[in-house]
Structures are given as structure tokens and as C-alpha cells.
Design a binder for these strands. Structure first.
Lengths: 347, 347
DNA sequence: CTGAAAGCGCTTACAG
DNA sequence: CTGAAAGCGCTTACAG
């Protein structure tokens, strides 16, 4: 493996200075068209590529973005929430389209993750993605902000949290799906999913849910709420607890994965979905469509979300103003809530 | 945003030379223990991080690996094959565990992807991941090899292809799942999935399938084979074509996604799985377990695969010898083949 | 339009 | 154990 060519080698071969090579290769208008083309030809023949380390060092930026994924600590490696994966896909594309590279990393709370990438100039900005139990990170987020790190969070915008958020309107999503359930005639309800400050996204969905329950004139004190993280198993366990008592007409789950577990629990009791109990999820992951009972759920447009995240982070990097942004959710009605209507919207 | 501290700032504050700071921060045994600790303390207080661009430039390597994902061109962004995602997860973890960063990129054939990362010193090595229609890339792969780029492919090892492969034994997987079907008493078979050189993984599964069919004494010329790429829709369409004729007892699908589509097609004809037609998939993706009819499939251990890919790429980078490696597949029996036995293996 | 030169922030022989 | 110095391969004022 012969050592790689440098701009000096090209310069020598082209009979020009190294500066000119650098300019030519970056399409500077300062260099003569023919010279530029000659240089480019030689560079291509030699399979020369600008050394990013040198170029980044000199330019003091890396042309790369970092994506920090926060997983639920309990979830199995091979069982990453498909919603995040979908986001990963769209973020990757949007990043590439903007001419940036993407560094991906899964984080767990113990790591000294904060700022690492940006401080070491490996990334110009950070995207934080995870079901928002950001309370644990709050200190680190403020630290990031203090240091002037450019970062964006996916999740519920919240004045109390440091940094700028882009997310989907969880409250509205909770409202819409619950309204649908009420309109279908369901009268007693349970909710599965963490519904406190540590999980602002789930909390938003829960709040929307409760608001509709109250508006519809039901006794909110009769609503059962069980905590669960976003896994099938956690949903299964929570649902089993709910089913020990008198079972509700409808169970609203804070995520599709939770809903999958709830459906398994309901079946294990010899009950049928939606005949005995209606179940709805949230996220519109792929499974929700192909599940034994196609799931009524709320779709968050990951395509748009990824583009928004990237374009706004880029603005931040370029010192342009950026504000919180809330995307509208979209109700996807399938069979699990008992209306019999099937939609093949998206995946 | 004040400008970042450099090793010179630390040196100044610690009253030592910049060389000593650099050594201390990289835990060189050459520096006095107390000096080292003093320096580290200061660095931490200042939230100093070594500039990776400078350090990489000097060291002539980047401590990062690049993962190039090749998608089927037709598949929707939000519908990335879950198998790859699972691999992504384990590769990310293994990379981090080895102290490397991971650059992720989705490739499409038009891009001048080859070598970009390694040539520009942004990555020390490449992992190529995709359903192996590597024929299209063959030229580029040879080019990579010629340039001395360190890369590894996920997929079927094949003497005719440039580069080293790590993959799962597709032939054996095809053999096992077909043997299972035969043992269950199925007597007429169809196969859905590209079965030619352009898709060596699917081809391996198909060859294993055909071998068993022949060994079992069935007329191989009666076997129907329809091409399909790894999407639900493609599987659906192929199955619909098959169902126009006399339908087989069992349909072997080259991937779970294809199998999901086949099941939908069968249902749309008013037939039942497995009562009327047995269906099996390949990959053991999450959906295969939660599907309306849990799918009999072949599991590829993505956890081990990711670790193998990373550790072997690292060997390649360190100029240690690396050879092709074939992992054994694992049959997962669920309900879709008609034996009624349910396994909750893994996800 | 072009070239000579400085300098981005490190790591690591080299000398002590 | 420590420091002065070279140099990794670029980009970009500066001067012409």
C-alpha cells in the first residue's frame, strides 16, 4: 500500500503551487479554468482525496454532525425502538444531502458523553434523540448550553429545559386518539406509560388523554394509569396488572411497543382485541401495521422530523436564530380500536 | 462563546511544556504521576478536549470506522430492513467498545462512495452492509482492494468477489428450514426471492432449499420461483402471481419482509396460514414474532455478527490476517409452518 | 490569476 | 522524567 498522494504531489505534477491545487480542488473562482481542470484530472487519476483531518483542522470545523441516541437502559440491543431507527434513517439522509457526515453513537447515562464530539471538533453540532427522560441529563444539557455547544433535542419543547427542541405535539396526539376512542363509544379507560416529568413525551400524551376523558364527562379518578417504558415486555406486565381488576373498555398505550405487549396480555387472558378491549398505540412503527390486530396509532412524520432536525441544527451552526418547533401528529385508524376500518397509510 | 482551550493553555496553567501536557493526557508512563494528575485536573476544569482533527492529522489515523449501508433502491426511507438496523445497533456498540467512533452513511449506487472515507482519512476502515447485490459494486470493490483500503463485507463469502466477507451460512439456513417443512409433510413448494448471482445471500438460501427438495425426492422442476426484493410489497406481488396457479403447500421466502407480504396475499385470497399454505421467512426480525401468524424463520445472530465485523476490521487495520467467516444460522420454529409449536426465542 | 508563507493543534522523535 | 522543535496536510490572508 503506497502512501497517499498529497496536494504537493499534485502540484508538482501539474507544475503549479500547492496553493493553486488547494484552490482548484475547492472550486475557487480564483483559479484559471484550464488550470483547474488540469489539476482535477490529475487528482482523479491519482485517486487523490483531500485529507479531512488537515482540512478540518485548518478550517476549524468538521463538516460532520453527531447523533446521540438515548436508549431505554433495559431494552435489548437488537430491539431498538423502530421509531428511532426510522428517525436515524431520515437524519442520515438529510445530513448527507447537506454535505455533512454523520457520527452515530448510542449513549447510556454513565458515559461522559456530553460535548465530547463537539469539544473535540469531531462534530459541529449534536442531535439528541431518545424518549425524553431528559431529567437525568438536565445538568449536562445546561453544561452543553453554557459551553456554547450547538445541539438540538428531539422531543417536547419545554421552557424549563435547556436547549431547543423539535418534536411532535404529544398532547394533541393524545387528544386525537382519545377523542376517537370516545366517539366509538368506549366508556372506561386505562393508560399505560410513564406519565411524569421524567418522560415529557409520554406525559404529553397522557395529558391529552386525560383532558378528553374529562371533557367527555367521564370520572377521571376511575382511570387506571400504569407506568411502563417503551418495550413490549414492559407493556405486557403493566397490562397484566390492569387486567387483574375489572378490565377497561379501552387501553391507551404511550407507544406501539407497549401496545404490542398489552395485546399479548389481553390474549393471554382469553380476551379479544378489539371485541373485549380496544387498544391503541403511538408511533406507527412497522409492526403496528402487520400485527395480528393492526393497531390504531398516531403517526409522527419521521421524514419531515429528520429534515427539520438537520436543517435547524445547521442554522444553529451558522448562528442563525432557531426556535422550538412542534409538528402536528396524525391519527392512523386501524382495527385495534374496534371500528373495523383499515388504513394502509405509510408503513 | 469563548474560544476553546488548547494544550498550550493547559501547559501555561500547569507550568509545564505543551509536550508534557500531551503526554499526560494520553496517559504516557513517561510523565510524573503527580504532574500528570495536576494536568488532568486542570484539563477537566477547563473542559478541555484533545482536538481530534489535529491529533488524527498527526497520528495519521482517525480512530473511526465507517459503516456503509446499501439499501434496496426501491425501499421507503422509513422502512429500512429491520435486520440491518439490528446490525447497526450491534456494530455501533462494538465500535464504541473498541474506542472507535462510527460514521454511518446510506449509499446508493450513483454515489462516488467508494473509498471516500478512507481516502480522506475520515475513517480507518469500512464495513459494507446490504443484501448482497454486490455485482453492481464489483468494480468498485476491486478498486477499494487495489488502493489498500481496509474493508469488510457482510454477506456470503465468495472467492469470485474481492474483499473479505463475514456472513451467515445462507445455504445451511435454506437447508434447515426446508428440511423442517419437508418433515412436517409439505409436498409442493414455492420460493420467493431473487435467486441469482446478483443476490448471493438469497441465492444461497435458494440453493439450500432446492438441495433439500431434490434430496427428499420431489420433482424440482415443479418448484415455482418468483423474484422479489426484500420488501413486504414485493413479497405480496410475487405471492399473488404464485397464487394465480395451483397453490403450493409451502412458500419459502428469502426474507421475513417478503414473508409478511406473502401472508397478506394468501389471506386476500381467502386462504389461511398455515392451514392452507405454510409460509416461512428468513432473518427473525421483530415483526416475525408479533405477526398475526408468528413466523417460522431463520435467526442470524446480529449481536455476534456486529462484534465479529468490528473485531475483524480492527485486525485488518492493524495488519493482522483475517479470513472469511461463516456463522451458523439458527432455525426458529413458530406457527406459520403448521406445527403449532411456539418459540419466543430472542426478540 | 498565482505563489510563498503562516498556522490550525496536536504527537513524537531527539536531546538532555 | 521534561522541553524545544519538527511536521502531519491542508486553507487562506498577503503580496504581487
Amino acid at each position: 500500500m503506497k502512501s497517499k498522494a498529497t496536494s504537493f504531489d499534485i502540484a508538482h505534477m501539474a507544475g503549479v503551487s500547492q496553493s493553486t491545487v488547494s484552490r482548484a480542488l475547492s472550486d475557487s473562482p480564483l483559479v484559471n479554468k484550464e488550470t483547474r481542470e488540469r489539476i482535477k484530472k490529475i487528482a482523479q487519476d491519482l485517486n487523490y482525496k483531500v485529507d479531512k483531518n488537515a482540512s478540518n483542522l485548518r478550517k476549524q470545523h468538521s463538516q460532520t454532525l453527531a447523533l446521540l441516541l438515548f436508549e431505554d437502559p433495559t431494552s435489548d440491543d437488537s430491539l431498538i425502538n423502530p421509531f428511532f431507527i426510522s428517525m436515524l434513517g431520515s437524519i442520515t439522509k438529510a445530513t448527507a444531502a447537506a454535505g455533512y457526515d454523520l457520527l452515530v453513537s448510542f449513549q447510556n447515562m454513565k458515559d461522559d458523553w456530553h460535548a465530547v464530539y463537539e469539544d473535540s471538533n469531531k462534530a459541529d453540532g449534536l442531535i439528541l434523540l431518545g424518549y425524553g427522560s431528559y431529567t437525568d441529563y438536565e445538568y449536562k444539557l445546561s453544561q452543553l448550553e453554557e459551553q456554547g455547544t450547538r445541539f438540538l433535542r428531539w422531543g417536547a419543547p419545554d421552557k424549563k429545559h435547556p436547549g431547543i427542541s423539535i418534536g411532535c405535539d404529544n398532547f394533541l396526539g393524545g387528544v386525537e386518539i382519545t377523542k376517537h376512542l370516545v366517539s366509538l363509544g368506549h366508556r372506561s379507560f386505562a393508560f399505560i406509560g410513564q406519565a411524569d416529568e421524567s418522560a415529557p413525551e409520554f406525559k404529553g400524551r397522557f395529558d391529552g388523554f386525560m383532558t378528553v376523558i374529562a371533557q367527555a364527562g367521564f370520572d377521571t379518578s376511575k382511570v387506571v394509569q400504569k407506568n411502563a417504558i417503551s418495550t413490549e415486555l414492559s407493556g405486557y406486565k403493566a397490562a397484566m396488572e390492569i387486567l387483574e381488576g375489572e378490565h377497561p373498555n379501552a387501553i391507551v398505550c404511550a407507544s406501539d411497543l407497549i401496545a404490542m405487549g398489552a395485546i399479548r396480555a389481553i390474549r393471554s387472558k382469553g380476551l379479544k382485541v378489539p371485541r373485549d378491549i380496544a387498544v391503541v398505540g403511538y408511533d406507527n412503527i412497522q409492526i403496528s401495521q402487520f400485527a395480528s390486530t393492526p393497531l390504531t396509532t398516531v403517526h409522527q412524520n419521521t421524514q419531515v422530523a429528520g429534515e427539520l432536525l438537520v436543517s435547524n441544527l445547521l442554522k444553529l451552526i451558522h448562528n442563525e436564530p432557531v426556535t422550538d418547533y412542534l409538528m402536528p401528529p396524525e391519527l392512523i385508524v386501524r382495527e385495534s380500536c374496534g371500528c373495523g376500518f383499515i388504513s394502509y397509510k405509510n408503513n
